[in-house]
């Protein structure tokens, strides 16, 4: 099981602050694809991704128990 946290407007798009997924051995790209397909959103390629509070690449492999945060860069100031 991995937990995925959604920040800023992603939270509204998904309709929840977090989801829990049965997953393991796959990478961030696969996770993004699953989320994109399931919630029909296509803007995940600009999102920053942290795994256990450390920035991760698309190729980072996920393990059971990981907490993944999807953080969209916002531009307001």
């Amino acid at each position: 099981m991995i937990k995925v946290l959604f920040f800023a407007h992603l939270k509204d798009v998904i309709g929840s602050e977090s989801v829990t997924l049965e997953m393991g051995g796959e990478n961030i790209i696969s996770l993004k694809k699953r989320i994109s397909d399931q919630y029909r959103i296509d803007s995940l390629h600009t999102v920053m991704v942290a795994v256990n509070e450390e920035f991760a690449d698309d190729s980072t492999i996920l393990s059971d128990g990981d907490i993944v945060a999807f953080i969209p860069p916002v531009s307001g100031g």
Partner: peptide
């Protein structure tokens, strides 16, 4: 280094409030 791709238009206060 941190941005995957350059977000051409991130969320702004004009569209999402603040």
């Amino acid at each position: 280094c941190l941005l995957r791709t350059i977000p051409l238009q991130g969320m702004t206060c004009e569209t999402s409030g603040i």
